[in-house]
Amino acid sequence: MDDMEEKTPATVLYDELDKTMWITKHSRYNASDRLRRKHSISIYTISILSIYALVLTLLEKYGFQVSNCNIYEFSSVLLALFILVLSLTEASKNYMVSSERLFVCGNNIRDLLDELKKFNNGSETDVAGIEALSSRYSHVLKACGENHETIDYDLLRAQRPKDFNDLNWFAGLYFKMKYMFNIYGLYFVLIVIPPVLFWKFK
């Protein structure tokens, strides 16, 4: 408590802005990486499903015998639906555009953090400079046009548990798994379902 009472207004402002920008910077980087990976796995999944459709056509053409004569038609419709949904999702989400914006935003905040280090001596004359940086920080956030999600912040907590005293190892593992499932979960299911259904009902 004594340390808190001895802090000058400049020191308090410095600590608050430093922590806020540090958290936002890393959360933006995590969000950028998540969206970049989603873009890649989305393209990969569309390619795999297209290969499934091609193989299905070849199997039907060359007389591969199946017990259920409707399996080819059903599988073709299912694959076409998956490919259409993924293509529309990729086109509407613009994962790479959002990823780039968040990455640039993270870089801009990093530059502000570097400038903030000039005002770490706690002098009263630093207050105006810190407030000016805070205003520029707000402008950077508004100019970004994108925002990170809670899952990106939670991953940061898992990555830097020593900086978040309220986080235990189990919660950190859960946040990491949740982050990975957010990226790959849907696409894994879409890749696995078609061959499983075909094999089950062939």
Rank of each mutant, 00 (worst) to 15 (best):
F198S: 00
C144L: 13
E16I: 04
F170K: 13
N94D: 15
E149A: 13
D154T: 04
T20W: 08
E73P: 00
L197Q: 08
R34E: 10
L112M: 10
D15L: 11
T150D: 14
M177A: 14
A91I: 10
L133G: 01
F74P: 00
T20S: 10
L133N: 00
V85C: 14
I23A: 05
V140N: 03
T20A: 15
M4E: 15
G172L: 09
F175W: 10
E131W: 06
I151A: 00
G145V: 14
G106H: 01
E124D: 10
L156R: 02
Y153D: 01
L102D: 04
W22S: 11
E146R: 13
L17K: 03
M21T: 11
T8H: 13
A158M: 05
L173A: 08
Y174M: 14
A53T: 00
T20G: 04
A53L: 14
S135T: 12
M180N: 08
K142D: 11
L186Q: 07
T150R: 08
L88G: 04
F170W: 12
R136V: 05
E149M: 11
H139F: 04
T8Q: 11
A53P: 00
N168S: 08
T45Q: 10
C105D: 10
D3F: 15
L133I: 12
E124Q: 04
E6L: 07
G129I: 08
T11P: 06
L113R: 04
Y62L: 13
I48S: 05
Y44F: 14
K178Y: 04
I71H: 06
F164H: 12
M96I: 08
K117Q: 15
W199S: 05
L56C: 07
I109Q: 01
F82R: 00
K118L: 11
E115H: 08
K202F: 01
I51Y: 01
Q65R: 10
F170V: 11
E131D: 13
A31R: 01
C69L: 13
L58Q: 07
L88E: 14
V104G: 07
L86S: 12
F103P: 07
L49V: 14
A31W: 02
I151F: 00
H148C: 03
G185T: 12
W199L: 10
H39P: 02
K200V: 09
S32C: 09
L78R: 02
F175M: 03
V104S: 13
L167I: 15
P195W: 01
Q159D: 11
M96G: 05
G185F: 13
A80I: 05
F74G: 01
Y14G: 01
D163W: 12
L84A: 14
S76N: 03
D33W: 09
D18R: 07
S75Q: 06
N68S: 07
S50D: 15
I41N: 04
Y14V: 03
M177D: 09
V127Q: 12
L13R: 02
Y174E: 15
I41W: 02
D163I: 02
I46Q: 09
S32P: 12
Y72H: 03
V127F: 06
L17S: 06
R101M: 14
G185L: 14
H148W: 12
I83Y: 00
K200M: 06
G145C: 14
L173I: 05
E131C: 04
K118W: 05
